[in-house]
Every structure is written in C-alpha cells, then in structure tokens.
C-alpha cells in the first residue's frame, strides 16, 4: 500500500457552498480524511502544501486575470482535475454579467470603479484547462461528491447519470407540477442529481444542475409559451445558475 492520495481543494469566484459540501459530510468526513491526505484546503486547514495533487477539486468560475493565470498552475500539478458545481462547470450565476456592460455593472455597485479589476465574463474552468470530470449542481449533491471520491479512490469511473431530472421525478413518484398545475419546470432539460427536489416541494425545477445531455430546450420553451409564459419569463428561466451553459444560453437568446 502506497502513500495516501493527496487532495487539493481550490476556490475561484463562487459562494463556498460546494466545498462546504465536503465539510457537510458529517458521517463520512473522518473516514474520508482517513483515506486521503488533505494537502490543500484553506477553508478547513492552515496546512499549505503546494506540491502535486492526485485529486484537485475546483470550485468557482474564472472572473479575474489572476484566476485565469493560477488555474494553469493547478492543472500542471494535478493528476485529476475535477470541477465541482455550476460556477466551475458553466460559469455560475455571476455569468449573468457576460454580454452586459461590465463598466456599468462596476459603477452600479462600487463608488470607485478604478479600484475594481475584473474580466468582462465569468467562464467555466474547462474554457481554460482540460477537466477530467465534472460534478454538476448549485450546489453539488453530497451523495455525488462521496461517490466521486469513493470511485476515484477505487480507480473506477464515478456514476453520475446524465439523464433528465424528469426521470428522477417520475421515480420519486411526484405529481408533475407542469401537467397538474401549469407551473413552469425545467425538469425535462435539466441534468439529474438533486433527486427532483423542487417538484417534491410543489415548485418547478429551476435548473441548478444545468442542461442534461442533448437537452431539447426548444420543445420545452414552446410548451411553456403554450402555457402562457412570456418571452421574458422564458429568458429568465434559462438565465440563472447555469446561464452560460451553451444549451441554456442559446435558448435564452432565442427569447431575448
């Protein structure tokens, strides 16, 4: 048995929620740290070990020049680089600035725009470096994070099915909120992972996990329009936590 695999956890522009999911694994945390050497995880420890990582978990999107630079150094030092969450995989909520007048955004929030350095867009990690695996979600699902770590330690491919939230919803036995109540729902086009949480709470899916594979967003948008949604409603629905994921972005633009 060789040395324990070395883990690095990195934060880019984000809310900290996805890396917090690791600390939220209350039942598994001590077992995980028994199997893995946490070499770098500033939210949890002062240990500042900046060598090579067997697994790098990256949270957040690239929104500054500094971030655009350091992601390359992390990639070079990591065997497997895995992005966790909507920010890292698609750009996150902050990608709502993409295509907007960023100078105006800065002056709307800050009294001294000249103090602020930011890029014009928020972009996913894969736009900058090759990514080995991605976990979806805003935030990621804890059970998927544990599956990812367990699979990586066992040297197998993680199981995170790419089908629609709709399938999880049917399996959970929820009443379809769109058919029964006419509530707009992104379940048919959204990547599985959450267990169809929102329909279970009598609300429509709002797409935290981003587009599923081959998402037929146009058919869904047409159905939403039949149910009375305006172009602005449809654009907003596709423009949230994965606004910059191509399938959602393009559908939103069709209603712009």
């Amino acid at each position: 048995m060789g040395a324990k695999p070395r883990l690095g956890v990195f934060k880019f522009s984000s809310c900290d929620g996805c890396q917090l999911s690791l600390l939220d694994c209350e039942d598994e945390l001590l077992a995980i740290v028994g199997a893995i050497d946490i070499a770098y995880f500033p939210e949890a420890t002062r240990a500042d070990d900046t060598g090579h990582y067997d697994i790098a978990l990256v949270e957040g999107s690239v929104t500054t020049l500094h971030e655009a630079k350091i992601i390359h150094s992390i990639r070079e030092r990591s065997t497997r680089l895995i992005t966790i969450g909507a920010c890292a995989t698609s750009g996150g909520i902050q990608a709502l600035k993409n295509g907007a007048d960023v100078a105006e955004f800065i002056s709307a929030v800050y009294a001294h725009p000249d103090y602020i350095a930011t890029l014009d867009s928020a972009t996913p990690i894969k736009d900058h470096v090759p990514v080995d695996y991605e976990l979806r979600g805003c935030p990621i699902a804890k059970h998927q994070l544990i599956e990812l770590i367990a699979a990586t330690l066992a040297g197998r491919w993680p199981r995170t099915p790419p089908h629609a939230t709709c399938m999880e919803c049917k399996r959970a036995g929820h009443v379809c909120v769109m058919v029964a109540q006419g509530t707009p729902c992104l379940g048919p086009v959204t990547h599985a992972g959450c267990g169809a949480l929102c329909p279970g709470y009598a609300r429509g899916c709002y797409g935290c996990f981003g587009p599923k594979e081959n998402a037929n967003t146009a058919a869904l948008a047409a159905r939403l329009a039949e149910d009375g949604a305006t172009g602005r409603d449809i654009r907003r629905l596709f423009s949230t936590y994965n606004a910059n994921a191509p399938a959602f972005r393009q559908e939103a633009q069709r209603h712009g």
């Binding site: 880019f12 522009s13 929104t63 500054t64 971030e67 909520i93 902050q94 709502l96 600035k97 907007a100 105006e104 955004f105 800065i106 709307a108 929030v109 800050y110 602020i116 930011t118 928020a122 907003r236 949230t240």
Partner: peptide, 17 residues
C-alpha cells in the same frame, strides 16, 4: 474576493426570484 455584481444583475429580475 472577486466581485460578482449581484446588486447589478438583480436589476430586471422578477421579485419572486
């Protein structure tokens, strides 16, 4: 922490969001 401009992109969103 890189600014994320919530107060700017909230403009135009619906209050329910």
């Amino acid at each position: 922490e890189p600014p994320r401009f919530f107060e700017a992109f909230l403009r135009g969103r619906d209050l329910s969001e």
